[in-house]
Design a protein around this nucleic acid. Structure first.
Length: 820
RNA sequence: GGGCGUGUGGUGGAAUGGCAUACACAGCGGACUUAAAAUCCGUGGCCCUUCGGGCAUGAGGGUUCGAGUCCCUCCACGCCCACCA
């Protein structure tokens, strides 16, 4: 039964919409999946929520754009090639076919003409065009940088792909640090805009907070510390507390800092070099192992350089140390240390016996060490007596006036490292010419395709380097011999603009397109109205996509006014089993296919909708199969009501009686409740309301007066319409049998306000906050009537026993609270 | 260490400051059946002497006529970030 509808929806193009559709546009999108094979429960959950929105918005009268695609580049395909020798393209396309089949079996409504696959040559071409244009615009650049090298994947990773414990988020190997020439995208140029646009987004607050923290804007000052006796040298430092200048008793360079060599005196050289060498060997996790107050560990990890810098406020020379608690990757890689007002500096100072000068008077009973709170400034020259806030502003002005420093905003956000030393990705379209240097491949020669004849086994060299025909190139500028770039792009580049491409018709467009997407189509559909995916993408994907959308607007590919790609974002919870995320790599997967075969896709969909709030995690337990069975049982009841209740059960010759009115009330209240629940992402309660409606219809069938056709038809039809976005196969079949035709474009039912309103309501009578009686009253009851009724209640009279109430709180028509 | 979130029956969960436990799963009882499955109906927090009461939303305070909901302290769990200067 489900298959028939799935085939029909595809054959008839039921879910295809075009840009000239007269209905108002609405764009529903689920994060496009990495094709790892047949769908897992996380996919089912995600695409069920998406499909519900597509079908519901369609019934509300929108032209709903519902595309799908596959994030088809990435490591697993390449690892499979290493393991089995199957080409990544062959492997990937087989996995896509499996996942696509699962999505079809789920009954999800897609416009398949818009399918995007990252590894399609046309998609690669535009990736590469964007890169070249960004290179021209100065938004892509090449730099030598300390990078995260994963020995298992034999590649460099983005900061975001290194987990908190210093391991690779894919292979779990301990990540090493290496210095390599890499390609970067200048996302930091957009840091402020990405930060400032956050508040206006209709996104979960915690995702916004994560983005805000990741961008990590902090205001302060950058200043130069003159090196004593070396007028040609100075140490640049960033601080958020310029007011604490008077407390600077030493300075610290990161071990990788370029000045370490020139500042270190001969007498200290051996010790400093030993420290630098030992730190270079450490992974991030080992480097952080002593973070906190472990002074023994700290004592091992710093060294005096022999040099001094001048404290600009006091004019006093202070020693310069090298220590690994200062990170080259943040700020300037050097700090002015204020032990009195920074706990890390305090710890280091204590370990190295360095002086502490307080510049903020701590509170009276202060027994702690560093004091970072507010207070009165001391030992701070012209700032003495000020508050910290005042002193901060004054200090910056003083720095700018004296030329020691400038106001500075610093970001935690780093530029986006996109180079990957892997095969199964989009090649970076540049060549290296002996004479001209870095030269982009001309746009009419794009895309640079991946050669098939390469060595996949890890060699330490990128796989593309193993193909001489690929590497050997002619310089587009001088025609001389050149070497082609052998790195490919981070796959997050692919996922940063696929939603724009989907506004067009990648699979149906007249070839060859002259643009990555039609700007008019983008203007019509974008931004995505409802974007649904896992919270795991809260930082990387969503931030990169926001950045890319802005860049493409600024480079005239997309409408310049389009800044934000995703207006409303919903992040669904994870599926867990045995306390851990359900995933293929952990081997705790319960495949959806077996439920498609047994209870059907509709029952599995309803399970995912009903099990709990969509944003919450779901625990897959021994009880889950019973819950899914329960969903299937309910759908069976609906089926029997819709197509099994014969005319003989109905009598149509009776005027509307009490049971009819009661059922009509339940029906119309269900419309109201389900509509509200859909708006607020509360699918579990929407299912509950529909089950109540089902129960009410059952009860109605058994009422003494007997069921009436009109009432019954309205209730069952409404049930079907409200259920359609959840269980579309069942409803499509029932609707066709009852009425003929397609249910998918039926209008969403509208509740009759007269039927939603009660003609009586329960008035709760409380005595000192405890419920003592319940009275059926008119909903329009007045305060005085309600109070009088409550006070007249026999149960109240008995308990009051003549005592005069001190106060009577009346909230008609729901509650009267009598206080004695 | 910082930030955010969660804690309600046997289980998943429901509840604009106003009837706590909707809806479901499991359980129990019944109808139908030779029997089972399926289906249908009923029951369903805990305690007390059943009438009727009393006590229950992680613990303890507070605000309020009234708190699962708001405020404070604490406990437990989860997630994100983390020598970020």
């Amino acid at each position: 039964m489900e298959r028939r509808w799935q085939e029909r929806w595809i054959a008839e193009g039921t879910w295809e919409v075009d840009a000239d559709d007269p209905r108002p546009p609405y764009y529903v999108l689920c994060m496009y999946p990495y094709p790892s094979g047949p769908a897992h429960q996380g996919h089912v959950r995600n695409y069920t929520f998406g499909d519900l929105n597509v079908r519901w918005r369609t019934m509300l009268g929108y032209a709903v754009l519902s595309p799908i695609g596959f994030d088809s580049f990435g490591l697993p395909a390449e690892n499979a090639a290493i393991a089995t020798g199957v080409h990544p393209r062959v492997f990937t396309e087989a996995r896509i076919a499996e996942l696509r089949a699962s999505l079809v079996r789920l009954g999800a409504a897609y416009d398949w003409r818009r399918e995007v696959r990252s590894h399609d040559p046309e998609y690669m071409r535009w990736n590469q065009v964007f890169f070249v244009r960004m290179l021209e615009a100065g938004l892509a650049y090449r730099a030598s940088a300390p990078v995260n090298w994963c020995p298992g994947c034999r590649t460099v990773l983005a900061n975001e792909q290194v987990l908190a414990d210093g391991t690779c988020d894919r292979s779990g190997d301990l990540v090493e640090r290496r210095q390599l020439e890499q390609w970067f995208l200048r996302i930091t140029a957009y840091a402020d805009e990405l930060l400032e646009a956050l508040p206006a987004l209709d996104w979960p607050e915690r995702v916004k907070v994560m983005q805000r923290n990741w961008i990590g804007r902090s205001e302060g000052a950058e200043l130069s510390l003159a090196v004593q006796g070396r007028p040609e040298l100075s140490v640049e430092v960033f601080t958020t507390r310029p007011d604490t200048l008077g407390g600077v008793t030493y300075a610290v360079l990161a071990p990788e800092h370029p000045l370490v060599g020139s500042l270190t005196a001969p007498a200290q050289r051996a010790e400093v070099e030993a420290l630098v060498k030992s730190v270079a060997r450490l992974s991030d996790i080992e480097r952080q192992a002593g973070a906190g107050t472990d002074r023994v560990a700290l004592a091992k990890r710093g060294a005096f350089t022999g040099a001094h810098v001048i404290n600009p406020l006091t004019g006093a020379p202070v020693p310069v140390y090298v220590a690994d608690y200062v990170l080259m990757g943040y700020g300037t890689g050097a700090i002015m240390a204020v032990p009195a007002e920074d706990q890390r500096d305090w710890d280091f100072a204590a370990a190295y016996d360095l002086p502490v000068v307080r510049t903020v008077a701590p509170p009276q009973a202060w027994e702690g060490e560093a004091y970072i709170g507010d207070g009165v400034k001391i030992n701070s020259s012209f700032m003495d007596g000020m508050t910290v806030t005042e002193a901060r502003a004054e200090a910056i002005e003083w720095l700018e006036r004296t030329g020691f420093g400038t106001r500075k905003v610093n970001y935690r956000l780093r530029d986006w490292l996109i180079s990957r030393q892997r095969y199964w990705g989009c090649p970076i379209p540049v060549v290296y010419c002996e004479r001209c240097g870095v030269v982009p491949v001309p746009e009419d020669e794009l895309p640079v395709m991946l050669p098939d004849d390469v060595e996949f086994a890890p060699t330490g060299e990128p796989p593309l380097a193993s193909c001489p025909e690929f590497v050997k190139a002619l310089c587009p500028r001088c025609g001389g011999p050149a070497r082609r770039e052998t790195d490919t792009m981070d796959t997050f580049v692919d996922s940063s603009w696929y939603f724009l491409r989907m506004c067009d018709l990648p699979q149906g467009a007249p070839a060859p397109p002259t643009a990555p997407f039609d700007p008019a189509a983008v203007a019509r559909w974008m931004p995505v109205d409802t974007y649904i995916g896992g919270v795991t993408h809260a930082i990387m994907h969503l931030l990169y996509a926001r950045f890319f959308t802005r860049v493409l607007g600024d480079l005239d590919f997309a409408p310049a006014a389009l800044r934000e790609p995703f207006g409303r974002l919903f992040t669904q919870g994870m599926i867990r089993m045995g306390g851990r995320a359900m995933s293929k790599s952990k081997g705790n997967v319960v495949a959806p296919e077996r439920y498609f075969d047994s209870v059907g896709a509709d029952a599995l969909r309803v399970f995912h909708l009903s099990v709990g709030p969509p944003a919450d995690d779901v625990d897959w337990t021994s009880q889950t199969d019973e819950l899914i069975e329960g969903c299937a049982r309910w759908l069976g009841r609906v089926w029997r009501l819709a197509v099994g209740v014969s005319a003989a059960d109905e009598t149509s010759d009776r005027a509307g009686a009490a049971p009819d009115l009661a059922l009509r009330r339940v029906t119309h209240r269900a419309i109201q409740a389900v509509t509200r629940d859909f708006e607020r992402w509360s699918y579990n309660t929407a299912v509950a309301r529909l089950r109540e409606l089902t129960n009410a219809i059952h009860a109605y069938l058994g009422c003494p007066e007997g069921p009436q056709t009109a009432t019954l038809t309205e209730a069952v039809d409404t049930l079907l319409l409200l259920l359609n976005p959840m269980a579309p196969h069942l409803v499509a079949e029932c609707w066709e049998r009852r009425h003929g035709g397609e249910v998918s474009t039926q209008p969403w039912p509208v509740a009759d306000p007269d039927l939603v309103r009660d003609d009586t309501t329960t008035l709760v009578v409380q005595l000192n906050g405890k419920v003592r009686d319940r009275l059926e009253v008119d909903p329009g009851i007045s305060e005085s009537e309600a109070a009088a009724l409550a006070l007249a209640s026999p149960k109240v009279v008995e308990r009051l026993a003549g005592v005069e109430p001190r106060r009577v709180v009346v909230r008609p028509p729901n509650l009267v609270n009598i206080v004695v």
